[in-house]
């Protein structure tokens, strides 16, 4: 008797992926960095390092610090800028069949709008992920992610200038994530991704000063998984948009928890740093879990824990 392979395909609104596992922005470079370590063709989607209109230098070092089962970063959105991204990074990604999702960030609504319009002309870009939630820059960034009106305005600007799916990445650094989630839904987003990093800090007790030059940074890694899971659960309750779960996913079991909480896909972030093979291991592990439980399609996992 032939063993039926479970169906790993997922749809995030109008975006169709061969499996639900993507790379989180800022943890996978522009794809090429992992080219010799990961079979990029096997991934659900590649989400690249956040791109701004102009290049950004980023924050002074130290930019990272290790914490208990996690890490803090204050990279400051260092990136090559739109022009160099189009000239130098897209050609490599065009050779990869996996859908490319570009994470965009700006200082103003106009910035986001221009990025959306320019990237709409790039066929390889399957979707945009709008970063309204980076905690490490002083202008824009998190201000958009914590104010429902601003989140709405940014989302709408991108929506109006980009013809393919728009995903909005939410910050956990808010009192009530459902307020922002609803504002973004109303503005016409196709999907939500959450969570970005959790604002935190660490202090060097010998030097008696903060470990990060930026003082505060974004906490990521296994330490934040319970927070991400809780927020995905809350968002799934308050909006009808598809949700992409992010936050501390390191193993297939972590990914499955997010799916059960209501996510239809997930992103692997910090785990790429500690185990470049993490994404492929998670894809295989989800498949095994489905087979073991006799579940035909990964889509059946979404929100299953909510119905119990």
């Amino acid at each position: 008797m032939a063993i039926e392979q479970p169906d790993m395909r997922v749809s995030i609104g109008p975006l169709h992926l061969q499996n639900p596992v993507m790379t989180a922005s800022g943890t996978f470079g522009y794809g090429e960095e992992y080219g010799s370590l990961v079979n990029l063709h096997r991934l659900g989607a590649i989400i690249v390092k956040g791109i701004s209109l102009r290049p950004r230098q980023g924050n002074p070092p130290p930019r990272i610090a290790e914490t208990a089962a996690g890490m803090l970063n204050a990279i400051g959105l260092e990136n090559v800028g739109l022009e160099r991204f189009l000239a130098e990074k897209i050609p490599f990604l065009e050779g990869i069949e996996t859908p490319l999702i570009v994470n965009i960030l700006g200082d103003s609504v106009d910035d986001y709008q221009e990025l959306a319009a320019r990237l709409d002309g790039e066929e390889k870009v399957a979707a945009l992920e709008v970063n309204i939630s980076c905690p490490n820059v002083r202008h824009g960034g998190v201000a958009f992610g914590t104010d429902p009106e601003m989140a709405h305005a940014v989302t709408k600007a991108v929506r109006d200038h980009f013809s393919r799916p728009v995903i909005v990445k939410l910050s956990p650094n808010v009192t009530d994530i459902t307020v922002i989630a609803r504002a973004v839904e109303e503005a016409g987003a196709d999907a939500l991704s959450l969570i970005n990093t959790v604002l935190g800090m660490a202090i060097d007790i010998e030097a008696e000063k903060p470990k990060l030059a930026n003082v505060f940074g974004g906490l990521s890694g296994p330490a934040i998984k319970p927070i991400g899971l809780r927020m995905v659960w809350q968002a799934a309750e308050s909006v009808s948009l598809p949700i992409i779960g992010i936050g501390g996913i390191t193993t297939p079991e972590d990914a499955i928890e997010y799916l059960l909480a209501g996510a239809c896909a997930i992103q692997v972030g910090t785990a790429n740093f500690i185990n470049p093979g993490a994404t492929e291991e998670i894809i295989r592990g989800i498949g095994k879990h489905l087979t073991a439980r006799g579940i035909d399609s990964v889509q059946e996992l979404t929100g299953r824990a909510r119905r119990r």
């Binding site: 800022g26 960095e33 390092k49 230098q57 002074p60 070092p61 930019r63 970063n73 990279i75 260092e78």
Partner: peptide, 24 residues
């Protein structure tokens, strides 16, 4: 020697200031 998370130019944690002080 710097702090670094990935070693693959993905995390960008291991920034070193350029001689001209303009970027890393």
């Amino acid at each position: 020697e710097t702090m670094m998370a990935c070693g693959l130019a993905a995390c960008l944690g291991c920034a070193v200031l350029r001689r001209d002080m303009n970027g890393y």
